[in-house]
Design a protein around this nucleic acid. Sequence first.
DNA 1: TCTGGGGTCCTAGGACCC
DNA 2: TCTGGGGTCCTAGGACCC
Length: 429
Amino acid sequence: MSPAKLFALVDCNNFYVSCERLFQPALEGRPVVVLSNNDGCLVARSNEAKALGLPMGAPYFQVARTLRQHQVAVFSSNYALYGDLSRRVMQILASAAPASEVYSIDECFLDLTGIATADALSQQLVQQVRSWTGIPVSVGLAPTKTLAKLANRLAKKGLGQGGVLDWRALSEPSAVLQRTAVEDLWGISQHWGQRLRALGITDALALAQAPSAWLQAHFGVVLVRLGRELQGFSCLTLETQPPARKQIMVSRSFGQPVTQWSVLRAAITHFASRAGEKLRAQGLLAQALTVFLETSPDGKHGDPKARPPPESLTLSFSPPTADSATLVRAACWGAQQRFRDGSIYRKAGIMLLDLMPAGQVVPGLFDAPERADHARQRMQALDAVNARFGRGALRFAAELGGDTWRLRAERRSSACPTDWQALPRVRAG
DNA sequence: TCTGGGGTCCTAGGACCC
DNA sequence: TCTGGGGTCCTAGGACCC
């Protein structure tokens, strides 16, 4: 018989805040928050900020006064910094376990099945990550991913030892489940939480004890699996190989409302060429592209917040392509079909769909192979220049049509260990 | 005035086929 | 007069995650 499964969930504590604090240690012990793109809402909070009652995802303008009152340090998000630190943390974790799955920018599942010293190993990892990267992490150990998530929450609350909580060591796991509100579980959000509560399921223990057939009938297979996982039967496996991307999306809310075609075209051009970069970095080709435009709430139809649905258009490519010029041309053409003079646009984006590996393409009868070769070479040159001199060093002229769509990011930290210009200067003597 | 961006999975229903 | 049933594929929409 194979040994019982054992998963570790390693989660960085208040990750974005911890990243910012690395470069400003004076912020230790003070409330800190990090804002989403466009400085829209709160996406990370230090423990001190949580203690002030600042909710996750709160719109910035609604909490701005509280933030000022309590002298909370506020940062725009700096994804170059977070991405770089994430990579360093993940490398350490991957080298410590037989198998790992990077689940998000700040979380990693490890498979520790059959490792008798899992507890000690986890505590050692907490130390190691802290001293090698400066990032504090917590670990939850359990026989299923869902329970490992829950164990991690408990570890963050200071239960367990040295930042590690082992579910198997709990004396009364059912009591813990009973104290866990159903919407605090991984996979249960507000909406399902309300529906479960309406049906009398308010805590994790009740969910674990609900009959599978009943869960299936009311919620489908997703909750059946969740229930099984809570009972300790592993249904979710470790995904060690990141599955091939099925779609690539680039979209942004605009820094200011956009009404001019030239500005919109500049934004669309930027999105399409950025999407092309992502596509080529993954060695993929796209067979279709969707461009969409979202207008501002128009105040009609009673509800002032009601937004008209996005206007979109999907185009297909034959042969499949990763050529930014082709993507830009298609995206701009599509956007122009949907653009209306007099409309006020607040957001736009593109999606690349029906992706396939570049090696698998079968040339069509009427394709011109030499043209595709030239395009490929142009893109290689473009990517090489931008890798050397920074993203956007070489770009499409239509991007110069206007900059007013760009994000607000008024409080971006300058810290970035991958950018020479941003390194702190130290003077001797 | 101001509420992110980028993903995945599941389900239901329709089209189509034999 | 009677008018099947089972399978696949696709799409849109809804839900979730961080």
